[in-house]
Design a protein around this nucleic acid. Structure first.
Lengths: 165, 165
DNA sequence: AATAAGGGTTGCTAATCGAAACTTAGACTT
DNA sequence: AAGTCTAAGTTTCGATTAGCAACCCTTATT
């Protein structure tokens, strides 16, 4: 077995991502934001989320720079929550999660498909690619220290390779 | 504004994915599993998670087919939790999340990098691609009904296009 | 038989969620 | 200017859930 991640500190990017987006409604709020919703009432009605939780989540997402909160110019009662660049950067993660869910859900409504708007063709299923664009599966991946990048790695564990009893 | 997803029912794959993986420790358990951990005590010690919660999460992930629970042959006290194909399918989502977290975390320890083990080169940052492989940003995407696939879409909202006050 | 290890379950407390009522500030009407 | 309405939250309080510690059951090991 090759190199293994240090899980102890939990200190990889995943922990940070989960800290920001790991709570119950965060991803659904994000999805709503990607669909153009930006007012408190819109989120509240579309998601059916409790108002205090919504308030809490929006505040946290603003605090972490995923959303930007700006009082509305035209009507000062209203507030706009809009995705920042950081928030927009979550699209691949959300889509990957969504594609996984669609693939494995019992009931699924593929009544809308995400497409390239230039030609209307569906986007690809999100996957992991090597630097040259080859699609990579888990058994073709390994962990490497930054100083040894560029040197091949033997497989780091025995997943799906029966040869190690 | 073009087509918008029906958010009401929450019935997209994202809901299903979150139902399976949306709880507090699920993704960290998944990460540990990807790192080769497969015993209860290993998860418990590495993650520092409470035993009842761990038990609960593992059971749920097994129930949803992300992990497979098999009593160990050699030592009947032990149980092995291993990723199924469905579980392995979460890797792109997890990596996308992780890459996002690494990009935006204040403190970050890039002491290990995920590489293609054939040549030791880092994998690409996960992104969304058109059918021909072009990288796509949010403003180049749109929702389309299955019957109209192949016909271009006008942009569905005004994110980052100042032209719609 | 005695001891220990692996994989849980049970009780109990602290934190979090959720529904509904309440508050505050800004528009809109008359 | 008073009254009403709307948007965006807070507060309150009962219902869940997380987390800790201790206990239990089965299977090795000595």
């Amino acid at each position: 077995m090759g190199i293994r991640e240090p899980l102890g500190e939990l200190g990889c990017g995943l922990s940070h991502a989960l800290e920001v987006m790991g709570e119950r409604w965060s991803f659904l709020i994000l999805r709503a934001a990607f669909n153009g919703l930006c007012h408190f009432e819109e989120f509240s009605q579309e998601l059916g989320i409790a108002r205090n939780i919504l308030s809490n989540r929006l505040a946290k997402m603003v605090e972490h720079g995923v959303l930007e909160r700006t009082p509305c110019e035209s009507d000062r009662r209203k507030v706009e929550y809009r995705l920042t660049e950081k928030g927009l950067g979550l699209l691949p993660a959300m889509l990957a999660l969504r594609q996984w869910g669609e693939k494995h859900a019992d009931v699924c409504n593929p009544n809308l498909v995400l497409v390239d708007c230039r030609d209307g063709e569906p986007v690809q299923t999100i996957g992991i690619q090597a630097h040259d664009g080859r699609a990579l599966g888990w058994h073709e991946l390994g962990w490497q220290t930054p100083d040894k990048i560029g040197t091949p790695v033997e497989r780091h564990d025995g997943y799906h390779t029966k040869e190690n009893a």
